[in-house]
Amino acid sequence: MNYLIVFLELLLSMALVVGALAFSRLLAPRPAVQTESRPYECGAELVGNARVRFHAGYYLVALLFLVFDVEAAFLYPWAMAQAQVGLVGLIEIVVFISILLLALVYAWKKRVLEWL
């Protein structure tokens, strides 16, 4: 029943968006002039397309994120069970986290975090 409501909520959000679109199609004026459909870049003449290359730093951040996000996913079950696994679990997780912190230090020393 829980997930039924969650699923209905998902449908509701879709209905909301589609409804909003339909609503504005009914009520809003249509743009008539061709220039209105150009991307808005402060009114200046457009220079090329927006599908351009961007800073490689974003890619590095995404890679780093991937590592630590998977780590966070592993930490969820551990956090749930820590009360049962006791000291052994804690030691294991310390080892696990320190390896990842080591990876962070490595990335730091490699100047990944300096936004080259």
Binding site: L21, F23, S24, R25, L27, A28, P29, R30, P31, E36, S37, R38, P39, Y40, N49
Partner: peptide, 10 residues
């Protein structure tokens, strides 16, 4: 609601 619903070219 009463604003034009614009979709940019391309």
């Amino acid at each position: 609601i009463s604003k034009a619903d614009l979709v940019p070219r391309d």
